[in-house]
Nucleic acid binder design. Structure first.
Lengths: 206, 206
DNA sequence: TTGACGTACATACAGTATGTATGTAACCTG
DNA sequence: CAGGTTACATACATACTGTATGTACGTCAA
């Protein structure tokens, strides 16, 4: 059976132990290599070679090279979800939660490897729709729901919530690209964060 | 000599005539097929076959498959540049020029094929940097300069201009993705346009 | 006009990629 | 401890890219 997802907690026997180690090593190397060379820039053979196995193992654990990429993307998304969740939990004001989450997302995407997997390769390899579906499951879905709540509560002025969610998300993605490549990424990050924060605050009900 | 650019106006002799027809047909078919299947989803052989030539012609006129894609992207960008320029020329108020240009860009990107070439495949095939460089030559460069002017004139509040330009551009790109896939793209487009317009207006000096 | 040279391709070939089918050793289970 | 299952490795068929080479046609000077 091809995974792509974690196989729900295995029993502790020897085969499963071996399985997990192998698939985990493939996943780790795939992430490293995809991050550096992109999906088409690295061959399945190179990935499994650095992981010390053959392509047989890859096709056993994942649904081909594309399935492997999917698994890598899910891992990346899960990590970002965690970071954003933690950042948001540290403030109380709803408006500031929005901004804190956005700031943390931007900071996370400063890593060029993560950025390439998530933002550059993701949509091209999986197609925009599948890519968005993955995102929806991790951060975008909750983000949109939160926006809707803020509008219901009258904190934000009324906007078409889907449109607004995509606009902000797209802004953040591109800002992250830019910041990561700037001469001084840290300064650029700060500028991106403050500029987006000001734009978001401008959406408040006056 | 590999082109990628138009070969400056050829003399009207028979060979050049043949050359132009061949490269033009390859370019046309490449655009159609890249738009529908993406860069990796179509082989060079398929492109030249529908164009009625062989891969020899492709490698003669373009710098390989990637060079062909570059040429297609440039064509797409040139068309968008033209559309946006015309739309902007129809209004006088600087603030409205900004919004009119943005609206027109969003409308242009409703076409899924154009969208795929420009926004999905572009960054993945060429890398974000080269992709941005192409964009810079066509619309992004002028856009940024215009933003800077509006800030100098005090029409817009002061922002880091690079950050702001990328934020707005990224917002537009993602809004276009969303609108094109919405159940009702026309309504979604209108929502994306009005929402972005409101956000842009919120940047004015009060 | 003609013959030499350049242009615009076509064809052939080599290298590398992917997916699949099949083999096999270790493991687990009744 | 036999029989089936799991976790891979190996072998193979197919496809795609780039390059090297061949060739017919066009062009131009003598």
């Amino acid at each position: 059976m091809k995974e792509t997802k974690q196989p729900d907690i295995e029993t502790g026997n020897k085969q499963d132990e071996r399985s997990r180690r192998t698939s985990s090593r493939i996943l780790t190397e795939a992430r490293r290599l995809f991050a550096e060379y992109g999906f088409t820039g690295v061959s399945a053979e190179q990935i499994v070679a650095t992981a010390g196995v053959t392509r047989g193992a890859l096709y056993h654990h994942f649904d081909g090279k594309k399935g492997l990429f999917r698994a890598v993307l899910n891992q990346v998304q899960t990590e970002i979800e965690e970071r954003v969740k933690n950042a948001v939990a540290q403030v109380q004001d709803p408006m500031e939660m929005l901004i804190a989450g956005n700031n943390e997302f931007l900071a996370a995407c400063l890593d060029p490897g993560l950025q390439r997997i998530l933002l550059t390769e993701g949509p091209a390899v999986l197609g925009w729709e599948e890519w968005r579906a993955v995102d929806e499951d991790h951060v975008q879905g909750k983000y949109r729901a939160f926006l809707a709540k803020l509008m219901d509560n009258g904190v934000l002025r009324p906007f078409p919530v889907d449109a607004l969610a995509h606009i902000i998300s797209g802004a953040a993605n591109e800002a992250a690209f830019w910041a990561a490549r700037a001469e001084d990424p840290e300064t650029a990050l700060a500028q991106a964060q403050s500029t987006m924060a000001e734009m978001i605050r401008a959406l408040r009900s006056e």
